[in-house]
Simulated scan of single mutants.
Amino acid sequence: MFYVYIIHSEKFDKYYVGSSQNPWKRIEKHNTSPFNTFTSKYRPWEIKAVFEAGTSRGQAEEIEKFIKKQKSKTILIKLIDQNFIPNGKLAQLVRVPHVRD
């Protein structure tokens, strides 16, 4: 399964959308990678939402790109809201608990 995730930097009030097979491990990389990337500039990051996005990397990346193309903080805040039900292009997203064992 591939996931789309939303992380937030409270210190800088920045959001980031990504996709991965393991978003819980991926956030560790966002917070510790020695490389100079967008996410390295706004550490620390915290997972705000995780969604099942499909069984292929392509499906997850398509949704990730769609969300990023919206260039909307509002849509990210809606997606983070537990009561929001995604529709349209995002209807296939299935929210998963972001706290893992």
Rank of each mutant, 00 (worst) to 15 (best):
M1D: 04
F2D: 03
F2P: 07
F2T: 07
Y3R: 11
Y5S: 03
I6T: 01
I7K: 06
H8K: 05
H8T: 07
S9I: 09
E10C: 03
K11Y: 01
Y15A: 04
Y15K: 06
Y16G: 05
V17G: 07
V17Y: 03
V17L: 05
G18R: 00
S20E: 00
S20I: 00
Q21W: 03
N22E: 12
N22A: 10
W24E: 05
K25T: 15
I27V: 13
E28F: 08
K29C: 11
H30M: 10
N31L: 12
S33W: 11
P34A: 08
P34Q: 02
F35V: 13
N36L: 12
N36S: 10
N36T: 11
N36M: 09
T37K: 14
Y42R: 07
Y42M: 05
P44M: 09
E46N: 02
I47L: 15
K48F: 09
A49V: 03
A49D: 03
A49R: 00
E52H: 07
A53E: 00
G54D: 02
G54K: 00
G54S: 01
T55V: 14
T55R: 10
S56H: 15
G58M: 12
G58Y: 10
Q59Y: 10
Q59G: 13
Q59C: 15
E62T: 08
E62S: 04
E64N: 08
E64M: 06
K65P: 06
K65S: 10
K65E: 11
F66E: 02
I67W: 00
K68D: 00
K68N: 02
K69A: 04
Q70V: 12
S72A: 07
S72W: 11
S72I: 09
T74K: 14
T74M: 13
T74E: 15
I75P: 05
I77M: 15
K78P: 03
K78Q: 01
L79R: 02
I80H: 12
I80T: 15
D81F: 15
Q82G: 07
N83C: 12
F84R: 06
F84N: 06
I85R: 02
N87F: 01
N87H: 03
G88L: 01
K89G: 04
K89T: 09
K89E: 11
L90H: 00
L90T: 03
L90K: 02
V94E: 10
V94Y: 11
V96M: 05
V96I: 14
V96Q: 09
V96P: 04
P97N: 15
P97G: 14
P97S: 10
H98T: 04
H98G: 04
V99M: 11
V99E: 15
V99Y: 15
R100W: 13
